[in-house]
Each structure stands twice: as structure tokens, then as C-alpha cells.
């Protein structure tokens, strides 16, 4: 599994994750407060463009922005179609531009922040909750960290199970389609649960409680 993060050494890459979240939150709130003004959408787009150039340089930044936009094509459809049904084209254009600007800006956070840095930020929020009493319910930062790293490790394993089942079906000449997908889910689920059991036992054998 390839994270969305793109390595770099820009000021945005070096900025602490918490500070970036704060800026993003402020931008999101500002855009939401003045949501009917086209100027807010323009300002958010300007901020996003400056951010992408700052993070990756002019050429690579523009390319990165184009890639992001292309990946959001379904979202654009999802935003635009209901609005065109119920609102005027002008309103739809402003709203679409506004939402896309915030999504693109949030994407910039993800492009410039390591997954491990965000996880560290999450754990920093979990630790006070643990002290405040959630720890008594078994909710500890240590376990949260274990759960997150296990999930990351499991995605390629389970995708491997899926491909294995699909290949076996193809070898038997089984049909493809929605019904086939459902038929594949039962063996996938059994393999997934057995993998969970084995992982749990392996961790317990290593003394993880």
C-alpha cells in the first residue's frame, strides 16, 4: 500500500503536523463561515496554489495539483450533479469551487505529512484520554498504536487473499460480476478471520497483552 505522502524538504514538509492541522481547520472554518462569497473560494484556491508551489516547486507543484484534480473527478460529479438538479448553475459553480478548494488544501496536508507523524499526533491525543479514565476500559495509547500498525500491515495481506481467491475462481472458469463478488466474500472473510486469530496468537506468544 502506497501512502499518498510525497517526500520533500520544503517548509510545509518540515512544519509540525499539529500546526498544519490548525491552519487547515482555520481555512475550513473561514470558508464555511463565508460560504456564499465567491471571493472566499478564490482565496482558498489561491492559498492551495501557493501551498502546492511552496511544497513541490512551480512545475512539480502544478503537476501534483493536476494529479489531485484528476483523482477527484468522481467527487466533482458527485458535487455538481445534485446541485445542477436543484440549484442554479452559478450557485453550483461557487459551491463546487469552494468544496474542491478545501479538499485540495486538505490533500496538501496529506501530501506533505508522513503517516507516522499523523499517527504520533493521534497518539498524543489518546494519551490524555487514557489518563482521564479510558485506560481503565482497556483503551491505551499502546494498544491504539498496535491496532494502527496491524491494520497497515494487514491491508496487503488481505489484498493478497483476495487475488488468490480470484485467481482460483478464474482457473475454474467461474463467472465474474456482482454475484461472483459476493461468492468471493465468504472465503475472503474466513481467511481474514483466521489471519486475525493467528495474528492474535502470535502477539500473545510474544507477550503482548
Amino acid at each position: 500500500m502506497i501512502p499518498i505522502y510525497r517526500p520533500g524538504s520544503s517548509a510545509l514538509h518540515r512544519m509540525p503536523a499539529g500546526a498544519k492541522v490548525a491552519v487547515l481547520l482555520a481555512a475550513g472554518i473561514a470558508v464555511a463561515l463565508w460560504r456564499d462569497s465567491p471571493w472566499v473560494a478564490v482565496a482558498a484556491w489561491a492559498l492551495a496554489a501557493v501551498g502546492y508551489v511552496l511544497a513541490f516547486g512551480a512545475r512539480a507543484g502544478a503537476a501534483q495539483l493536476a494529479v489531485r484534480m484528476w483523482r477527484l473527478k468522481w467527487l466533482v460529479l458527485l458535487i455538481a450533479v445534485p446541485q445542477l438538479l436543484f440549484l442554479t448553475a452559478g450557485e453550483a459553480a461557487i459551491t463546487t469551487a469552494r468544496i474542491l478548494a478545501v479538499v485540495i488544501l486538505a490533500g496538501l496536508f496529506t501530501l506533505t505529512t508522513r503517516v507516522s507523524d499523523v499517527m504520533e499526533l493521534v497518539l498524543r491525543l489518546v494519551r490524555p484520554a487514557e489518563r482521564l479514565g479510558l485506560g481503565r476500559w482497556g483503551f491505551t495509547a499502546e494498544r491504539a498504536a498496535l491496532a494502527m500498525s496491524l491494520t497497515m500491515r494487514s491491508v496487503p495481506v488481505i489484498f493478497g487473499f483476495y487475488q488468490e481467491i480470484r485467481r482460483a475462481r478464474q482457473a475454474r472458469g467461474a463467472r465474474t460480476g456482482p454475484a461472483a463478488a459476493a461468492a468471493m466474500t465468504t472465503p475472503l472473510l474466513v481467511m481474514t478471520l483466521q489471519h486475525a486469530e493467528e495474528t492474535g496468537e502470535a502477539l500473545a506468544a510474544r507477550g503482548v497483552r
Partner: peptide
């Protein structure tokens, strides 16, 4: 089997991964 806590954690983790795979 494994201690309940560790087993629950690994079940939650693999199911999160399963839902991610089903989304692809």
C-alpha cells in the same frame, strides 16, 4: 486462544483492512 484484548485488536485491525480492500 490469545488473550481477549490482543485478539480483539487483531480482529479490529484485519476488518479495517478488509473494508479497505473491498473499497478497492
Amino acid at each position: 486462544a490469545a488473550a481477549p484484548a490482543v485478539r480483539s485488536i487483531s480482529e479490529m485491525a484485519v476488518f479495517a483492512a478488509l473494508v479497505a480492500v473491498l473499497g478497492q
